[in-house]
């Protein structure tokens, strides 16, 4: 077997990575409110319970709305920036692109408090879903740019020139040639941004108004031991949903790679 010890280490590490994830469905189907072994027996009552919690449904809808708008905005901004950075030279390119990518490494709490300060103290606006969207778009855009840049970069510049040479205007070439070719990247980045926004807690925690997002709602529930099993059930459903979204995103990314005739070189990020 190749890589002997390394392989054993890798498998151990995977166990470490999966440890919390495996517990999620275990406790979601466990017939007991205490999070400990041994398990008490199989039940689906926690999933049934989810259907009856009004506050949860509100939070879920709120989160989906925020995530959709965030993803749409991030992808739009991402297309502008990714195309500009891969196709054109402009003054101060490196500092501008650097500034755009900063939220990727900035501690989220900093993003959260600075937006809070501006919205509440400086502009004196009420907190709402839109303030969360503003913050989420800020942190999602770099991810969208990263995915879209690789899509734009893989694109031979002569595709666009060929289209123009054959009579298209600049906009026509962009619409008919460039967009279809990067569309898999657009779908993939939309889904990634959607997932990130759906899961983001800190910014939402600081910037959310009267309507909590799903993670903020979950955070509130974690204090009450009796509510935990339902939260586990919710988490399980969310994991399944994330995996479906992710698989779709991966499918589109691969199709994109195949489309421009490249070789596949691993997954996202």
């Amino acid at each position: 077997m190749r890589g002997g010890w390394l392989r054993i280490y890798a498998i151990t590490y995977l166990v470490f990575l999966y440890l919390p994830v495996i517990l999620l469905p275990l406790f979601a189907f466990n017939d007991g409110t205490v999070m400990a072994f041994p398990l008490k027996g199989f039940t689906t009552q926690w999933f049934v319970q989810l259907a009856g919690i009004e506050a949860l449904h509100g939070a879920l809808l709120n989160s989906v709305f925020i995530a959709s708008v965030t993803a749409a905005l991030s992808v739009l901004l991402g297309i502008c920036a990714a195309r500009a950075s891969t196709r054109f030279r402009f003054p101060f390119k490196a500092p501008i692109m650097g500034a755009i990518m900063v939220p990727l490494v900035l501690p989220e709490i900093i993003v959260a408090v600075s937006l809070l300060v501006v919205v509440v103290q400086v502009l004196d606006l009420p907190l709402s879903a839109w303030t969360v969207i503003a913050g989420h778009t800020l942190i999602c855009t770099p991810f969208a740019i990263a995915i879209l840049s690789s899509a734009f970069q893989g694109l031979d510049q002569s595709f666009e020139e060929a289209a123009i040479d054959l009579g298209e205007t600049r906009w026509g070439a962009f619409k008919n040639i460039i967009l279809p070719l990067v569309s898999p990247g657009i779908v993939a980045s939309f889904l990634i941004c959607f997932t990130i926004s759906l899961d983001e807690f800190i910014i939402a925690f600081f910037l959310t108004g009267a309507e909590p997002t799903l993670p903020v709602y979950i955070w509130g529930q974690l204090r009450f031991p009796t509510k935990i099993p339902a939260v586990m059930a919710l988490g399980t459903l969310m994991l399944v949903a994330s995996l479906i979204i992710l698989s779709v995103a991966e499918y589109y990314r691969r199709r994109g790679v195949a489309r421009v005739g490249g070789k596949d070189s691993g997954g996202f990020l």
Partner: peptide
């Protein structure tokens, strides 16, 4: 390697 990280961060 990336799958576990699509579980809710709070829950993890």
């Amino acid at each position: 390697i990336t799958i576990p990280f699509w579980t809710s961060y709070l829950l993890r």
